Simulated scan of single mutants.
Amino acid sequence: MGVKTWMLVYSNANAKEILKSKPLLNREFSIELAKKLFPSKRFTPIEDGNLLMTNPPRDKVYIGSFPGMSVVSSDNVAIDYPSKLPQSFIDTGLGNTLYLFAMHSVVDWFAYAIWKNGTLIRSLSVSGADGKVLENIGPKQPFEELYWSEGHPLFDDPKEENDSPYNFNPLDLGNAALNEYLGYQLEGYSDTLHIDPEKIPLVGLQKLPWWKIW
């Protein structure tokens, strides 16, 4: 299946530290949050997921509300240009920091963004399939510097790197972003991991077809 993720993380504190504390899932608030974020949809519960299952298809949502933070995984946020995230996902009052993470290994694509108190601080979207930087807004965050300077080779032939605006694998940067802000990654080795994503539960919800709403 490869590496795939698309999710939003709302946090009032250090999200990594919150997850590290093994926070309790508030199931009732999670369901109410889904209704708030997707007001035109109706849901029915399905089997719970976890942070390893943040790549649901169009008809499902995985969502989790915890003390100090919330996680929302939906294909609605798998967007090439994070700065174009609908304002309804930003103006929620859920936390002073909002993160967007999205990766798809089939096209070696990674995107992430950070908002502070509703203001976009950083947005990056890079596609390894064609070597393009789709979006690059705001200052590079400290964890990015290694990748932009020394890099992780994207091409077998180093000469080809001269034709690309970067020379790292976007998925490497994507896993580094997850590790930096949430304390885990989906693939690759790191000796700094703090979270077992499979142990962080998310409520599973099935979107009902319109003809089943009434």
Rank of each mutant, 00 (worst) to 15 (best):
K159W: 03
G174D: 03
N169D: 13
N117F: 11
K41A: 06
V106D: 14
Y166E: 00
I63S: 07
G183V: 03
K199Y: 06
L98W: 03
P86Y: 05
A15T: 11
W210F: 12
M103R: 04
P67Y: 04
E144M: 07
D156S: 12
S83Q: 01
G68K: 09
P45I: 08
K199Q: 11
V3S: 05
Q87T: 13
P67D: 05
G138C: 00
L146Q: 15
A78P: 07
D163H: 10
L208W: 12
P170T: 08
G93A: 14
Q206V: 13
Y99E: 03
N55Q: 06
F89T: 06
S65G: 09
N14G: 09
W148P: 13
L94A: 05
S11P: 13
A102H: 14
P165R: 06
W211K: 12
P142Y: 01
N175H: 05
V106Q: 14
Y189K: 12
N169A: 07
Y184W: 14
M7Q: 13
P45L: 12
K212A: 14
K35Q: 10
L33T: 09
D163A: 10
I121S: 09
L33C: 09
T54I: 11
E187Q: 13
Y62C: 08
E135H: 10
V9M: 01
V9N: 02
L154K: 09
E150H: 12
R122I: 08
M1G: 13
L94N: 08
G188K: 10
F66R: 04
W109F: 11
F66L: 06
V107I: 15
R27Q: 14
